[in-house]
Nucleic acid binder design. Sequence first.
DNA 1: TCATAAGTTGCATGGTATGCAAACATGCAC
DNA 2: GTGCATGTTTGCATACCATGCAACTTATGA
Lengths: 223, 223
Amino acid sequence: MQLMTEGSAAGGGLRERKKRATRAALTEAAVRLAAEHGAERVTVEAISAAAGVSVRTFFNYFDTRDDVFVLTGAETGANVRKALLAAPARLSPMEALREALTAELAEAEQRHELWRLHGEVLRAAPHLLVRVLAAHLADETELAEAVAERIGPGRGAAPPGTSHEERRKALDLYPRVLAAVAVTAVRVSVDHWCARQEERSFREVFQEVFALLAAGLPAPPPA
Amino acid sequence: MQLMTEGSAAGGGLRERKKRATRAALTEAAVRLAAEHGAERVTVEAISAAAGVSVRTFFNYFDTRDDVFVLTGAETGANVRKALLAAPARLSPMEALREALTAELAEAEQRHELWRLHGEVLRAAPHLLVRVLAAHLADETELAEAVAERIGPGRGAAPPGTSHEERRKALDLYPRVLAAVAVTAVRVSVDHWCARQEERSFREVFQEVFALLAAGLPAPPPA
DNA sequence: TCATAAGTTGCATGGTATGCAAACATGCAC
DNA sequence: GTGCATGTTTGCATACCATGCAACTTATGA
């Protein structure tokens, strides 16, 4: 059995490898061109040409021009979900979320240069940043389902002293809120990390924001 | 001095009233057409025709076709900011945020039918929902600034036992996180409220989600 | 009333996005 | 390897989205 040293993960047939290569070529071309000329001045035609495919093919891979700048595949969601379910049972849902997300983000940070360029592009194009964040938002429901699956049925959280009725309603809300907090942590981290130009590692910022959020948001000290 | 019974708020000259009327006509036409035919099948031309203006004028009001479905004006941000700063000093930043947002959302709930239709449209068009969320995201920074202004300089929150250095860094983070939580509360509330079709009033849901978020997200009970 | 500023419109232009059918490559069975 | 079924790419036609510009219409304030 030979090592598969292909693209991002182990590759199936030639077809799938080619598809991954094309997609990677498109995203990379897009990010490089955008970093050089500004995201808004890069046309689909230019991206396609740089990647060596036709414009029509571009739209076979991405629904929208902007989608090429999102950079997170559909696999990301699945990865996080798996990591979440595989995390040690002793971890609280929140901790498990933190670990799962940290792992995924670390992997994303692997492709260092592209990630850096991508940061530059987003910093110069708020429109796209918003789009990326919104894409993450879309994952939230999936994440909430994974959380619900992890904590299992019959569980749920509600502040002490909640009535039975309110408790029942909060049940469905809990995974949602957890997922929302996690996504918010990612969002604020990215935002803050982009604002302070890499003054700190992304991982650091993320851990801090997550801690702040999960700690229960204490009121600021009196003075 | 006569009462101004115009559009949404007191109107200045005839010009401004006309502008507001045109904008309102466009958004209303857009939402109604989208509710009837599906959001993706409504062209700018159709919307403009229904509102009685030219296509070119549409783009004088909205940068993008999709923007007409966002429904929150730039005034919303300003309103919340004002309410936040005007809230009683005894309220914690979090409570002040809750009150300010509740007030603004209540006003939005006034135009009941349009709001309901809008919900329908968004439910059927995830693409647009994402866009709306993105718009809210953009407000977040503004909100964070308002929070920072309210809690004033020299304040900030950090968990007890934080080093001086970490505390300094957390300072800027705190308003951001607060704003992020508030926006998240709005988002989750809208989402949940849309999912359970008006089983409960929006205000109720919002209050609960906000409480859940602000309470510090206790871990789910053991059993 | 008149000059000015603001808003609207049509036109020209170019980028974005989709359906369709023909050409091409891949996977698989034989 | 030959040949077929399936999946991908491509060009073309078409429609919609979006912007700049110049001409035209309408409020505003002196």
